[in-house]
Design a protein around this nucleic acid. Structure first.
Ligand code: FES
Ligand code: FES
Lengths: 151, 151
DNA sequence: TACATAACCTAGTATTTTAGTCAAGTATTT
DNA sequence: AAATACTTGACTAAAATACTAGGTTATGTA
């Protein structure tokens, strides 16, 4: 599995949008400030998220991004997949050809681990996360911090 | 999580020893040939595995490595941990300080994923893997290949 | 219509990590 | 003594990652 800041940023940003969805659309500059992520880096991630139809964009002043699906239809797995290409832990990418075109000794082990991780990430949606108290608290803290920044 | 060839090689090599344990000790040169791993790279990994007391070494002619514990006492998690340092997917390494010393929006999500992966890898031992048919088959294939190589 | 805003796009680069090599050891058995 | 086998640490090429720079294009508003 590739679990890098790229995937983490993507989930964080998507969660940020889901939390501020009431405002119609959320612009990347705000996300960048709230979540402490470089704006231009976010732009790259959102180009992928859009390509995978997880978000829609609104151009021009007052524009931004909004979820393309309901929050309970967007799984964490989909988000990570969209920016990281895969959450695969095998070496062969499922092709069973690690060892000179043949299956290596541990192929099935990694496949099982894949399934385990997938089951977890596929079973969890943005709407699940929004409901959590720890997420609510952190989000409120971030909103306050942004307001202070702007004043 | 860092799931790289380093961790995969370590598990593969440990499994190889477990499978050939009847011979007392297994030397790295044989593992290198059977599993297609660079010998000098294996040496590095085994220095770590020894430091973590997962294997014992037997020096001199006929020497090699053998498991320091029973196969059913060595979990896959321990092996990966020994060479990769961690199977952690958080960004903060558990310290809750991603965002200027505070917890980020997704910290708890990654902690949950950590638990999920740990549960799986801690619940699986070398002895579990040895029993599997697919492992047996691949191992037999490798033994035959090594004999042909030596003749 | 000008202009500000914000998405969109293409390169490029600094840093880090990975996977692996090399060389000069030390220890143990035969 | 000689052969075998493990030990250690420094070193390196290549890849991936995280991030920056510098634009262009669309759109709402004054
Ligand atoms: S991981 Fe699939 S063949 Fe080795
Ligand atoms: S992952 Fe722990 S604070 Fe962000």
């Amino acid at each position: 599995m590739k679990m890098t800041t790229k995937g983490r940023y993507a989930v964080t940003a998507m969660l940020d949008i889901a939390l501020h969805d009431s405002k119609g659309s959320v612009n990347l500059a705000d996300i960048a400030k709230r979540q402490d992520i470089s704006l231009t880096y976010l732009e790259q991630l959102f180009s992928k998220l859009k390509r995978h139809k997880l978000v829609e964009s609104v151009r021009g002043p007052g524009g931004g991004y909004r979820l393309a699906l309901a929050a309970d239809a967007i799984t964490i797995a989909k988000i990570i997949y969209s920016v990281d290409e895969s959450i695969d832990v095998t070496r062969c990418k499922g092709k069973q050809n690690c060892q000179g075109n043949l299956r290596c000794l541990t192929h099935d082990l990694w496949m099982e681990l894949n399934m385990n991780i997938s089951r977890f990430l596929n079973g969890l949606t943005l709407s699940d996360l929004i409901k959590r108290n720890n997420v609510k608290h952190v989000s409120e803290r971030q909103d306050v911090a942004l307001l202070q920044l702007q004043s």
